[in-house]
Amino acid sequence: MTAAALGAAADTPPPARQGRWVRSEEARGLAMISPTFLYALALLLLPVLTVLAYSFWTQDYLDIDRTFTLENYRQALTEPIYRDLFVRSLWISLVVSVATVVFSYPIAWFISFHGGVHRNLWLFLVTVPCWTSYLLRVMSWKVILGYGGVLNTGLISLGLIDEPVTSLLYNSNAVVITLVHSWAAFAILPIYVSLQKIDRTLIEAARDLGDSRMRAFFRVTLPLSLPGVVSAFLIVMIPTVGDYVTPRLVGGKDGVMIATAIQTQFGKGANWPLGAALSVTTMVLVSLAAAVVVFALKFAVRRIR
């Protein structure tokens, strides 16, 4: 018997040890989660692989030419219209994510530290807007920001303006406002959970050692709640880039985002390969932007401490 065979034989567990492992708690746990894990993996991975495969093909009238090509990516990265949409989409998603986290953090902090016995009631009120349809929430902001909407009517009644403001709707600002409101609850909850896990004695120790309330917040509360902040940021940023309903309803021509172009290619444009290439490019750009922002956020908090 060769040395390699002897080594392989030595590394092979004896049958008795294999039998014990099969009957162990670890093996039974893996057997229980494996079907669910494989099912979830298939649901998540197969659609992405399908879109990735389409991005390397071309549309030949009503048929798909499966010859490998990078033409779709060339169009996605070099066409000025798509470059502008990528930049605008990333900028809007970043602004929405930052604004949502900034507005959500004080609410989550208040519920966590001062909610008291009414904490569950506050959380219940936070989730109330999610009871209605997402489309209905977007349409409500169209009514609020419209030319004859609630905001213009109120400002005229107070004498602050003489005629309705036309710049409130059908622009990128309207998209940002609507998306911040729509995703606020999804940012408040992870931040709240992260704040709830903070040991209050650490904050008391910082105060006893001479830190002011503000300094204790930046040195203790904010760094320890950073996982919730990062989660909230990613929860908001990733879906907003792919939102095409809100830009279509309240954005107008100045609020169009890349998701609208993708939806057009998969719909009226009937060019699935180009739409797939735009989708893959968007996923890559969003991942890179999210990684940069998360790293910058951690670095800023570290510098503050």
Rank of each mutant, 00 (worst) to 15 (best):
L49C: 11
L189I: 15
F186G: 03
L145H: 03
G159V: 11
R200M: 06
Y39S: 11
V143C: 00
A205C: 08
F295R: 14
F110D: 03
R200Q: 12
R213G: 14
L224Y: 02
V245K: 04
L49Y: 05
P14H: 12
Q18I: 06
L151Q: 07
A184L: 15
L151E: 05
R303M: 11
N152L: 08
F299L: 15
A99L: 14
V230C: 05
R200T: 10
R88P: 02
N271V: 07
A5H: 05
G275N: 08
H118F: 10
F56N: 02
T240Q: 04
Q18A: 12
F103M: 15
S89G: 05
W183E: 08
D162C: 00
Y192P: 00
M139P: 02
I188Y: 00
L297S: 09
I111V: 13
A16F: 02
V236W: 01
V284C: 06
I177R: 04
F86V: 03
M1G: 11
F124L: 14
G146Y: 05
M283Y: 02
N171M: 07
S133N: 09
R219P: 00
S225W: 01
V175N: 02
W109F: 15
V150I: 13
L160D: 02
A216W: 01
F186S: 04
D243H: 08
T12A: 13
W272E: 10
L38S: 04
L151F: 08
A184E: 06
F218R: 10
L90I: 12
S225L: 03
S225R: 02
E204C: 00
L288E: 07
D11L: 11
A296G: 09
T246D: 03
A40Q: 10
R137P: 05
G7M: 13
I156D: 01
M214S: 09
N173R: 09
T78D: 10
I238Y: 07
G116M: 09
R248V: 03
L52M: 12
E26H: 12
L249M: 13
L136Q: 04
I238C: 05
V98W: 01
V284E: 11
T260W: 08
F103A: 14
I64M: 10
I198Y: 04
V165Q: 12
V229M: 12
V138L: 06
T100Q: 06
A3R: 08
R119H: 01
